[in-house]
Amino acid sequence: MGLKKQMLQFEDQRSDLESDYESDAEPLILKPFRLLDLPSEIRLHIYHFVLFTPTRKSALQRTGNVGASAKKSKPLAPSSHRIGLFLASKQIHDEATHYFYSTQTFRVLPVQDFLRMPTIRGLPRRHRASVTTIELIVGSSWTAPPKSWTINQGLGLQDMRLARTLKVFVQCDPSHPVFEGFRISRDFYTNFCGNLLHEILGRLPGLVQVEFDGWPSVDQNGPLMTRLLAETRGAHKKVLWGTERGWSDHQDGRHKHHELSDIDAAFDGMLSHPPDIVEALSNSLQTVKLES
């Protein structure tokens, strides 16, 4: 018997068995699962699973390399999963979107490290009220801050009524001597960042605390950090310290000042600056190494 004829007989026998099973079995009735009958705590766990469970290993690769907004950002599920959840019903949409925006850290101003998440200016206005944590990263473009780095009504800070924490990450302090000859002046960037933070603190209606962190060359008692801390305490906000540097209220940064090498400062300055000045700073770094 040929193989083709055997396959045809097998298909006929399988069809007969399926027909007999379907005629004897009771019809299968699928009962709907009422998600909204679950307690809200369990629904939030389900939203987290749907929103932040990637299906590919490549999705686990984080984008961005600066601050909590990059290092602590959750890997996202495929957009089709997220959109499907948001379109399930109005109540599920409202609960899921609020959970999504309240668990993310959004940057106040853009930094050139290819982070996927938008800055707060790019958030839909209706979702700004869900944001609880934002981050300001300073040190980037310290010779010529972008003109877009302005704090105004269009930024939407006044809409973030639930924002309780502002994270401030300092990439470098250009008042360090190694930047002499590259910066506009010793106090230019210190004053620029101080005024920036002053404006932000004045526009967040429910802000409670400001958390500071930075790269290795940043001195806790240096000019830039001193100005930022003064603005924070002047606005009567609680000061917290991030995990990157391990700073604390009881730490005296002055006795560690000698450990902050010129090489670290130049290296941090290169990482935080656009490519047009990296070559010049690289040459300066080589000079520092030779002199050391």
Results as ranks from 00 to 15, higher is better:
6 Q>C: 07
8 L>C: 03
10 F>C: 04
11 E>N: 07
12 D>Q: 13
13 Q>A: 08
18 E>P: 00
19 S>A: 07
32 P>F: 13
35 L>E: 04
36 L>Y: 10
44 L>W: 02
44 L>R: 12
47 Y>T: 05
47 Y>A: 03
48 H>R: 13
54 P>Q: 09
57 K>P: 05
62 R>N: 03
65 N>G: 06
66 V>Y: 13
66 V>M: 09
66 V>Q: 05
67 G>C: 02
68 A>T: 14
69 S>G: 02
71 K>I: 02
72 K>C: 12
73 S>T: 12
73 S>D: 12
74 K>T: 10
76 L>K: 13
76 L>C: 11
77 A>Q: 04
78 P>R: 13
82 R>D: 03
83 I>W: 05
88 A>Y: 14
88 A>F: 14
91 Q>I: 09
92 I>R: 02
94 D>V: 00
98 H>L: 06
99 Y>W: 11
99 Y>N: 04
101 Y>G: 01
101 Y>K: 00
105 T>C: 02
109 L>N: 02
112 Q>Y: 12
117 M>I: 08
118 P>T: 07
118 P>N: 03
121 R>H: 05
126 R>K: 11
126 R>L: 08
130 S>Q: 06
131 V>W: 07
133 T>S: 04
140 S>W: 11
142 W>C: 06
142 W>Q: 00
147 K>S: 09
150 T>C: 05
151 I>D: 03
152 N>S: 13
152 N>E: 10
153 Q>G: 03
154 G>I: 00
155 L>C: 03
157 L>Q: 09
158 Q>C: 11
164 R>P: 00
165 T>R: 15
166 L>M: 09
168 V>W: 05
168 V>Y: 01
170 V>G: 12
177 P>K: 14
177 P>C: 14
180 E>S: 15
182 F>T: 15
194 G>P: 13
199 E>T: 12
199 E>W: 02
203 R>F: 01
203 R>W: 04
204 L>I: 14
207 L>I: 15
209 Q>M: 13
210 V>S: 01
210 V>C: 09
218 V>L: 03
228 L>V: 09
230 A>K: 15
234 G>S: 12
236 H>M: 13
238 K>P: 06
239 V>C: 04
240 L>M: 13
241 W>F: 15
242 G>H: 02
248 S>T: 13
252 D>N: 15
255 H>M: 12
256 K>M: 08
257 H>M: 14
258 H>K: 13
261 S>Q: 02
261 S>A: 00
263 I>Q: 07
263 I>E: 11
265 A>C: 11
266 A>L: 15
272 S>M: 06
277 I>C: 00
279 E>I: 08
280 A>H: 06
282 S>W: 00
288 V>A: 06
